[in-house]
Design a protein around this nucleic acid. Structure first.
Lengths: 123, 123
DNA sequence: CTCACGTACAACCATTTGGTTGTACGTTAT
DNA sequence: ATAACGTACAACCAAATGGTTGTACGTGAG
């Protein structure tokens, strides 16, 4: 498993897609069996086009995939999606604890250099 | 540990706050020692007021707390914050697998009521 | 005391977002 | 063949976002 580092834009789109109740609900629905967009749309108090847009946002964020089946477009949430969201959180949390710093430093410097942290952020 | 369920609005604000590169960077910076807002502002190619607004967003999301110290306002990221973000993700992921539904139903209803799922979304 | 600093907040602006309706087009059912 | 269905997409709109500048005010330093 390579787990490539997530770009800022990727994380932006990921979290933005998750920052909406309707979209999170769509995700939940489309795990147990894919649903056509119109079927989905029936579930919400908004137009078909609105739901279509929500799905598009989820798709751009890589949280769902669409697959054509006849005249329907079936939406399914990507199983790895949560994984990536979690990874984004992990990357943040690791900065939290300075773990990444320490590890990087431990790998880079001599053992025994237990300095206090002064990790430079992006200037 | 009580771990109260997160409201939709809470999760909305949480993910929305995280869906911005600058704000995520602020979070990273304000873990190792709190920083004054103006100190923070120096780090970004935008006005003081803009950074102030970003901090406000983080604060409303509960990701950061401010504490007055003299004429400065010190920003510190809440250690429990990531925890709540992770919880939000967990609540989603558990729906992923249908675990929460089943558990909730098992706990709430009579044993043996094995209905088919028709999980009602926000109407 | 006075002034610079750090903050708060309002007003304003451009862009994005989340929603609408309407139209067009391919596919399935009758 | 024709009608109904599911989708795609454009145009439009109101509200929220992310940024700006300007002003006011408390606090700390000289």
């Amino acid at each position: 498993m390579v787990v490539r580092e997530l770009s800022d834009e990727t994380v932006d789109r990921l979290f933005h897609a998750l920052a909406d109740t309707t979209r999170r609900d769509i995700l939940r629905r489309c795990v147990r069996g894919e649903l056509s967009v119109s079927r989905l749309a029936e579930a919400y108090p908004m137009s078909f086009a609105a739901v279509q847009k929500h799905v598009a946002v989820l798709e751009r964020a890589g949280l769902v995939t669409k697959q054509r089946s006849g005249r329907e477009q079936l939406v399914r949430t990507d199983p790895d999606a949560v994984g990536r969201a979690r990874q984004a959180l992990d990357e943040l949390e690791s900065a939290w604890r300075g773990r990444v710093d320490r590890m990087a430093r431990l790998l880079a410097e001599d053992p025994g250099t237990e300095e206090n942290d002064t990790t430079e952020g992006p200037e």
